[in-house]
Design a protein around this nucleic acid. Structure first.
Lengths: 246, 246
DNA sequence: CGGCTTCTTGATCAAGGTCAACCTTTGTGG
DNA sequence: CCACAAAGGTTGACCTTGATCAAGAAGCCG
């Protein structure tokens, strides 16, 4: 990971995304003191891994990443996709023990925060602590839906659900402007959804043939949002007012 | 749900379980003020559901429950099993919106806490807030492993993993005394693990035949812990020092 | 003793995994 | 500019896992 010029919190573009609630000047100043730098990471490089810094939390400025667990060679489960505005490494700072790995999917631009200081700030600033607790509770609900998806859905439904989830999250962040970015390859979908790469390809073909959605050139095209939603059993939970740390 | 005699926090048996960190007298007094009653629930009754009280958090004194999401008739995903000492309904109090359902698996004895007051206390007591945040982060990790299990494991491995998870959690709470309770029926295992009841039965037979574990009469017998662990790819994460609210 | 629910077991079938061939795109060096 | 290699995507053949349906067996009450 390389270092680059720092962005001042007051000027940060992520904070202006529609999902996130506005900070008070006091909170903004507090969080500003946590910022220790800006980082760049290349695709398929670990952000959090064996060698990574244990006392740092990141916020994604730009690019995608994923959390994963490894189970021997060629046995990886992608747990979640991380989009601009998402936090990386909070659990490690809270628990102090190694966590799931986090890896860049595309080129990443990250904002680095001092984890040790963050713990101290949380102990003094109940508003921030409550906001983070709410964020953790929301993440749990997303996890729950993902679990139900793997427990109940077939291959095509899993893909459809993930498409809608991504689309929704990007839209809330104002990142769907005439085309939804979708840099996931077949193998990423496969390890995120617990199906083989071959079957991902087949199911994608089926979704396209059914006039539901198409993935091509790193972009997602949803042809019929309503039918896709019905097919996947997707239900957007409309979580607004998240907290971003910048 | 019926009401029964109240148990004073200082005398609560759950607080003495080995998993939970001891409370300071100040914390104990604080939490004591939150307690609003004791409840009894019968098997297969909803604790948190459409009609349930929105501003209450429960701690399990005795018995098992499960969190679930429904997807139409005969399409239920059990998200997690809740054992004595576990919290129920925290996310609803934090987020203020309906959450997954929670249902009694066995007869349940619950401690009821005032959710609104809890929010207030969290805003004043950073220690408690930190402890709850850590609990949320730990729950997320358990969720992650469960997700990987559904994504990567076959039927028998899923069952084996769940056996070990339950066994570990009960042991940490001091509830495995010459026999591990296991009140789950085939259909519960099926909806928790995303496989059919028929296949659960078959896989249980296989696990027994392989000399790994047996379930009978509501009890779990692990014949060979080491081989079962290897088979399931299970890894206990050794989370001690959780926080219990009583 | 029925009448219930749960557990077991077998037969059949569909969903999806594995393997392999081939195609397309992209990048690289001559 | 072309040749070639490497990586990803598509498609087909075949086989395993597990779902579904169905028929007994075993408990468990009233």
């Amino acid at each position: 990971m390389r270092v680059t010029d720092i962005v001042r919190c007051e000027a940060c573009p992520v904070r202006r995304m529609p999902v996130f609630r506005p900070f008070s000047p006091a909170e903004l100043e507090l969080v500003g003191k946590l910022k220790i730098g800006q980082r760049i990471a290349d695709p398929e490089n670990d952000i959090i891994g064996a060698d990574a810094d244990a006392g740092v939390v990141f916020t994604i400025f730009e690019g995608w990443a994923y959390r994963y667990l490894d189970y021997g060679p060629d046995k990886r489960q992608i747990l979640d996709l991380l989009l601009p505005g998402d936090l990386i490494g909070l659990d490690r700072v809270l628990l102090g023990t190694p966590s799931s790995g986090v890896r860049a999917l595309t080129a990443l631009n990250l904002c680095a925060l001092d984890g040790t200081k963050l713990r101290r700030v949380l102990a003094e600033e109940p508003t921030l602590a409550s906001a983070l607790m709410a964020k953790l509770a929301r993440d749990q609900r997303r996890s729950d839906e993902r679990l139900a998806l793997l427990g109940q859905g077939n291959g095509a439904q899993r893909i459809a659900y993930l498409m809608l989830d991504i689309h929704e999250r990007l839209k809330r962040r104002g990142l769907v402007n005439g085309g939804c970015p979708f840099p996931l390859e077949r193998r990423h979908l496969a390890s995120a959804l617990g199906i083989s790469g071959t079957h991902v390809a087949r199911s994608l073909t089926n979704l396209r043939a059914a006039g539901l959605a198409t993935v091509a050139n790193g972009m997602l095209l949803i042809h019929n949002h309503e039918r896709l939603t019905a097919f996947a059993g997707f239900k957007a939970d409309g979580a607004l007012g998240e907290t971003v740390l910048i």
